[in-house]
Amino acid sequence: MIAPNQLTDPTVRAFVTAVNAGDRSAFSALLAPDATMSDDGSDREVAQWAEKEIWSANGHMDVVSESDGGLALVVDYRNDTWGEMRTAWRFVTDSGRVSRFETGQA
């Protein structure tokens, strides 16, 4: 596993740290105003998805590996709804904010 504070990209590092800390404010502050995301190839509304998959379900990211300068992660993701699954995450960042992220089973 890669500790969140060892992740290469500072924006992705902050994203993982916010998720794992259950810090909604830090998570929201990282998102660009028009941020988008997809889950298993289907676009979702970020706030609704985060509420269901992260906040109300105690989501947690254990990073297995990173690539593409830290913008692509393989993560053992767990939450109270789905249990644990290996997931892939890709991030598009701009000026320290996430403009898009994509996740899905790896």
Rank of each mutant, 00 (worst) to 15 (best):
V92Q: 07
D80W: 01
S56H: 01
M37Y: 04
D62E: 12
S65L: 04
N5D: 15
Q105Y: 14
R13P: 02
A29K: 07
E102R: 06
S99V: 05
V12P: 05
Y77E: 05
G69A: 06
Y77K: 02
V92R: 06
T8R: 14
D34K: 14
G104Q: 14
E53T: 14
I2D: 12
A3W: 02
T81W: 04
G83A: 10
D76N: 15
R90G: 04
E45D: 11
E53D: 15
M85F: 03
D9C: 03
T87Q: 07
R13I: 00
F27V: 02
S65A: 13
L73C: 12
D40Q: 05
D68Y: 09
E102Y: 10
A106R: 10
S38C: 06
R24P: 01
S56G: 03
V19D: 05
A57N: 00
M1G: 15
R97S: 11
G69F: 02
A32W: 00
P10D: 08
D34F: 15
S38P: 07
M85G: 10
T93H: 11
A106W: 08
L30M: 06
R78C: 13
V98S: 10
S95R: 13
I54V: 03
W82C: 10
E102Q: 12
M85K: 04
G104M: 14
G96D: 09
N79W: 00
W82P: 03
A47L: 07
L7H: 11
K52I: 03
L30Y: 03
E45M: 04
A14T: 06
V46Q: 13
D9R: 02
S95M: 09
A35N: 13
A57I: 01
R44G: 06
T87K: 12
D40F: 04
D94M: 07
S95Y: 12
A35E: 13
T81G: 04
A47E: 05
R90W: 11
N79F: 01
R44I: 02
D80V: 02
T103D: 12
V16Q: 01
G69M: 03
Y77P: 02
T11N: 06
W89D: 12
A35S: 14
I2R: 10
A57T: 01
S95C: 10
L73F: 13
N5W: 13
P33M: 14
M1Q: 09
S42K: 14
G22T: 05
A14I: 04
A35F: 09
D23W: 02
G59A: 11
